[in-house]
Design a protein around this nucleic acid. Structure first.
Lengths: 237, 237
DNA sequence: TGAACACTAGCCGTTTATGGCGAGGTCACC
DNA sequence: GGTGACCTCGCCATAAACGGCTAGTGTTCA
């Protein structure tokens, strides 16, 4: 099994188009013996898109009705770190329950697992499997494949990054230490007075840093500068 | 080897204190046969901290001189998705070269690899190994252990999340569509007037969105709200 | 059916940020 | 030995953000 997974990861790395990647993702259905496989990516500027084996009817319905607004799998995704079984989500509320029934109708299955993946520039992906089986079977499946799911999610995301030219390390701009300090503290919620106090410099001096950082980043104001610096990985809060 | 890794991952999951985790991390030195192992975590509000096997002298020197400001490993970390060899970084500039020599002196080694890990609330971790060997040996080492490094990084981060009670699914902060719009536009550099115009609502109404978003996010001001929303993946610019 | 929440809107006063003017120091690098 | 990048400080005026007040609609849900 291990070698099968290694071979798969290599295949992912060698994909040159999203179409090929789609084929490879679809091929996972046979590897895992599950109903469906989905890789859904949200990169920072572009449109979100999905590589999925779902029936066209269900996919269209999902899209048209904007079901991601009520889909518990999607709604909780941003809060999760580890892969999570869909059974662990809250399906009590009415829209969620209706969604579940519709998804069953759409051939998704009664079980599922999703792997959240986060990239450097706010990119976010969700790699999911869905199936029809009992809770025990699914739980067994998950504990067996957990690590592989993590790795596949990572490699898929990496492949997409390469295809979208997002893997280039662009040396955007470099901020001086003080500029970094200033933006970090402002991003952390301090006003200029507090930040200056924290850095033990005059408020005016702080302003100089903010403005030079703004200039370097081509930002219109402080908020913009902080947002750009975060997006470029220059600061983190 | 596989079973050894599985056993290790289980040990990580069973740690009840950071001290135990530190022991386990240190134990990786024997598994991988490398000079040093480091797990460095930056969670959004709290203090950053490290579990490292470095000599106290070097750790102290690093801390005192704020070497993370010039450490290429750290500086490029936020832009990376895949594990990266330290050799792939740019060491041309003078401060970086001096840092490299000092690190060698500090017993770090001439080779290294770092695995970036991102969590749901803007948390960021770096799991690194460092060693002394030739480029070819290190390259071989990396291609052999790559997947395991990814998994270990993930499990370490997960363990820290559990120990810090960060794994609880807090009644998720969800922003309304309008709140999201507001923060996104402000993060993109518009002032309130422009953003309101763009959304075709009154400036006051926009303010209501900003303030409710601020309240939800526990942010002190607009800049803070945008930064937090970005860190949590709620918006992207 | 009432509570909770999203969306919409205005006014007033205070605080904070920004834009523009100035100055002087260290340090590295060519 | 100059050039540029970085760090430090002050004053003045305007623009913008913030805090607090009130008030209506519509939807959703218990």
């Amino acid at each position: 099994m291990l070698s099968q997974m290694e071979a798969f990861l290599e295949r992912v790395e060698q994909c040159n188009t999203l179409g090929e990647l789609n084929q490879v993702v679809a091929g996972l259905r046979d590897v895992f013996q599950v109903n469906h496989v989905v890789y859904h990516s949200v990169n920072s500027d572009g449109e979100p898109y999905a590589l999925a084996t779902y029936d066209a009817d269900w996919a269209e319905h999902y899209e048209k009705e904007e079901l991601y607004r009520i889909d518990p799998v999607v709604l909780s995704a941003f809060q999760r770190f580890n892969p999570y079984s869909w059974k662990s989500l809250s399906w009590e509320k009415k829209p969620a329950r209706r969604f579940f029934l519709e998804a069953m109708d759409g051939g998704v299955g009664n079980q599922g697992v999703s792997v959240p993946i986060r990239g450097p520039h706010g990119e976010f992906s969700l790699f999911s499997l869905s199936h029809t089986c009992s809770d025990e079977e699914w739980s067994k499946f998950l504990s067996h494949w957990m690590s592989d799911l993590l790795l596949i999610g990572h490699y898929l995301h990496s492949a997409v990054r390469v295809l979208e030219n997002m893997d280039e390390i662009t040396e955007y701009v470099s901020l001086s230490p003080r500029e970094t300090d200033a933006l970090r503290l402002l991003g952390a919620g301090m006003n200029r007075g507090r930040a200056a106090e924290f850095l033990k410099i005059s408020e005016h001096t702080l302003r100089v840093y903010i403005e030079s950082a703004r200039f370097k980043l081509g930002a219109a104001n402080t908020t913009h500068a902080v947002a750009k610096a975060m997006a470029q990985g220059l600061i983190s809060i």
